[in-house]
Every structure is written in structure tokens, then in C-alpha cells.
Computed example of a mutant assay.
Amino acid sequence: MARNKPLETRDKTTVITGAASGMGADVARDIARRGGRVALLDRNEEGLATILASLPGTGHTSHLIDLTDDDAVVAVAADIEASHAHIQALITCAGSSMLGNIDQLTMAEMRWLMDVNLWGTVNITKALIPAMRRESAAHITHLVSIYGLAAPAGRIPYAMSKHAVRGFTESLRHELEGSTVTVGGVYPAGVKTGIILHGRYAAALDPAIAQRAAHAQAKMYRTEPEDAARTIVDATVNRRTRTFIGREARLVDAITRIAPSHYWSAMRKTLREAVDTTTPIKG
């Protein structure tokens, strides 16, 4: 199969979800530094304004949106098309986390995370595909996760949502074969953002135990957000179908291929403290 021609960044628009903070904000900065235009999407109005004001270049826009609201997403896609002549890329960085095991979680809590991580991604992608099809070349990048490769204990809602995003990404890539739009997934192992520390946890979970597990997870993160953003933008520009961020992501990919039924045995010890949401805090 012939390699897809890379995208031209300058004066073309990339839509970024979750752009008010964390990975999305760093991705926006990287694209703007390359001369591209960005449409920033988030539900954090103050954060959007701060990031928009910090970007070099002109032609950038920000859009306040709840990606789980179907009608609002259709409207925001129309707004973006009205403001930007050439939408050649979409990078979905919006997402959250949820701590707790199956006994601690409610169905409502698990549905909430699926709405945010999966349906928000599907919603904005579906809304923007018609505009992207009109471009001579375009690319969709979905941020998946190392937990879209492996499903650890104590992370059922997150692993479910990220495996679903992976499935959506791969099915969509196959559906769009032969069109001008290509699709890829990015699998970060651990980036030093605040997603785990500021994410949600089951209401039944002791907050102190949740913080202990979250900090144990965060201590394993090694990649700087700026480095991850550069990799994500490079993957988008070069229209890659599968990109790993961090040595651990490549390792987990290999382990799950070699031992698809037994990989947890190799991961359990490393993740022991990060997935422990039951052991009481010692006084």
C-alpha cells in the first residue's frame, strides 16, 4: 500500500478536543508553533480563553462544548466550518478517569465515563467527517491509552472506554479506506498530566484511598506533556495509523500479543498500589 502523503500544517485547521488543559493544550501550542490554525474545544471556558490568548499566529478559535450533547456537537461543527475554510485534522484529547472496583462503582458512574471517553469522541468525529472529506488530505487522531491495549484490575470503566475507542478508531479507519481521510490511534503509557489526580472516583470509595491509588499511578508517569504533544502532532501530520508513547506502551503491546490470556500476571506487581482501592489507610 502506498504511503499517504503528509499533511501541510501551515494555514490549515486542526480541531482539538480537551484543549483547555493538559495534553490538548500542549497539542494546540505545538500546532500553532508550526504555523497551523486550531479550533479549540472544551467545556472549561476560562481554560479555553487562557490557551487561545497564549497561541502564536492568527485565525484560531475556541468553542465551549459538552461533547456528550448531540445537538450541541452538531452546532459546534457548523460553527467551526463557518470559521475555518480547511479542516484537515481532528485530534481527540478530551477524556477523564474513574477509580474503583466493580463492587464500589455504580452503573451511573460507569456510564458517565463511557459517555465522556467514548461517545464524546464518536460524536465530534462523526460531525466533522463531512468537512474533512472535502479536503484533498485529512487525518483523524484519537488518543486511546495503554489501557486500550491491556485491561488492569481496578480500572474497569476506563479500560472499557479505551478499548471501545480503539475499536471505533480501527473500524472507522477501515470504513474510510479509499477516501481522503485517514485515521490513527495514539497509545500513551503515562504522561505527566493531571488526568489521574483530577479524575473522578467511585462515590463509595474512601477519598484518602482514592488519592493514594491515584498518586501511585501518577508516580509511574515518565513522559513530559510537551514531548507527548510533539509525538501526537507528528503522528497526525504523517497520518500514522498506530503510535506508541513511552517504552511501557510498546512493552505492554508485546506482552498482550504474546500472552493474551495471562498478561496480567506480568503487570500485577507493578500496578499493585495503583489499582488497590480497598486496603484501609493505616492510622
Rank of each mutant, 00 (worst) to 15 (best):
G57V: 05
D66R: 09
R3G: 10
A259N: 08
T61K: 01
T270P: 00
T182D: 04
H163R: 03
P188I: 12
R111W: 11
H174C: 09
Y187C: 03
H86G: 10
A266Y: 00
K162D: 02
A25D: 06
L172V: 13
G57H: 01
A2T: 13
E175I: 15
A214Q: 13
I245Y: 01
R257K: 08
T241R: 12
R212A: 01
I129F: 11
I245M: 02
R268D: 12
L128T: 10
G184S: 11
E175R: 15
H84S: 13
A203H: 05
P6F: 07
R34W: 14
A89E: 04
A131H: 03
G167T: 15
M1C: 04
H198I: 03
L41I: 15
T125S: 14
N4M: 13
V186A: 12
S261F: 03
Y201V: 02
L113R: 04
A108C: 04
A218V: 00
D79C: 08
A153P: 05
L271I: 07
Y158V: 03
A151F: 01
G178T: 03
W264P: 00
P130S: 05
S96E: 08
M107S: 12
Y147I: 11
N117K: 11
G190Q: 03
A53L: 02
A274Y: 01
G35F: 11
F244Y: 09
G190E: 02
E135S: 11
I65H: 00
N117E: 08
K282E: 15
G246A: 09
T13C: 15
A108V: 06
R272N: 08
G283F: 02
H198R: 15
L197V: 06
M132N: 02
R272T: 12
I65G: 00
T17W: 14
T243S: 07
V144Y: 12
T9Q: 12
R133G: 02
C93H: 14
P152L: 02
A78D: 13
F168T: 05
V165S: 03
R33F: 05
E273N: 02
R134Y: 01
A2S: 08
R242T: 10
M220C: 03
A131C: 00
P56D: 08
L251C: 03
A137W: 07
K126T: 15
I281N: 03
G22L: 07
S161E: 10
G100Q: 10
P207T: 09
K162I: 06
E135T: 14
L52K: 09
A213P: 02
R247T: 13
A249E: 11
E81T: 05
P188A: 10
